[in-house]
Amino acid sequence: MYHVVVAVDEDTERARRQAQAIENLPHAAEDVAVTLVHVFTDNPDGASATQIGAVRRAQERLEEAGIETKLEEQSGEPAASILQLAESTDADCICVGGRRRSPAGKAIFGSVSQSVILQADRPVLVTGGLEGVGE
């Protein structure tokens, strides 16, 4: 079984693209298992990952495609949490949603996807950062 950790934020369109990329993996329904993870950086109300629309949509889409799916929620720094989960579950791949950002925007605000790509010790699949590309 090929295990993918899929890091989902609050953006429903990015989550849709991530789920679509996983569905498009060879023999996904038979050979792929997914752990969806949402990392809360600030969660004073004690929300659950199942309350995040993007997480629910991704989970529903993957399950409809027959892909084995588990859900995790973490708190803390997103990139570090995603990388730790991938290591602790011995994931074969990490899937993150890309977004269009200027070089200055990346330098000022950082990028979870960029941090995961640079620090991961396993393949990272980046999906749908640009509107209309790959569709």
Rank of each mutant, 00 (worst) to 15 (best):
S102Q: 01
R99P: 14
K106T: 14
F109M: 13
D42W: 11
R57N: 05
P103D: 00
E87M: 14
A120G: 09
L62W: 14
V124W: 05
Q59L: 02
I67T: 05
D11K: 14
D9S: 11
G129D: 03
V126I: 09
D31F: 13
L125S: 06
R99L: 15
I94H: 05
F109W: 15
D9Q: 08
P26Q: 00
V32E: 00
D121C: 01
I108P: 00
Q119D: 13
S113K: 00
E87W: 09
A7S: 04
A33C: 14
R100P: 10
A33R: 11
E73R: 07
V133I: 11
V5W: 07
Q59C: 03
Y2I: 02
A58Q: 01
G76H: 04
S81Y: 12
A47T: 07
P44K: 02
R99E: 15
G46C: 07
S113Y: 00
G98R: 05
S115V: 09
H27T: 10
E30C: 05
P78Q: 13
G110Q: 08
H38R: 13
G46T: 06
H38A: 11
I52V: 00
A54Q: 05
R122D: 00
R100T: 13
E10V: 11
G105A: 12
S48M: 07
A15L: 08
D31R: 15
P103T: 00
R17A: 08
R61K: 12
G46A: 08
R56M: 04
R100F: 13
L130K: 13
K70R: 15
E135M: 10
L36Q: 02
Q119C: 11
R99S: 12
T12H: 07
D42K: 10
G66T: 01
T35S: 15
G66H: 04
L25P: 02
Q114S: 07
Q114C: 06
Q84R: 10
T12I: 07
I82Y: 09
V112C: 00
K106H: 11
E72R: 08
E60L: 03
V133K: 11
Q84F: 07
P44F: 06
H38E: 08
E23S: 03
G105F: 05
I82Q: 10
E10Y: 09
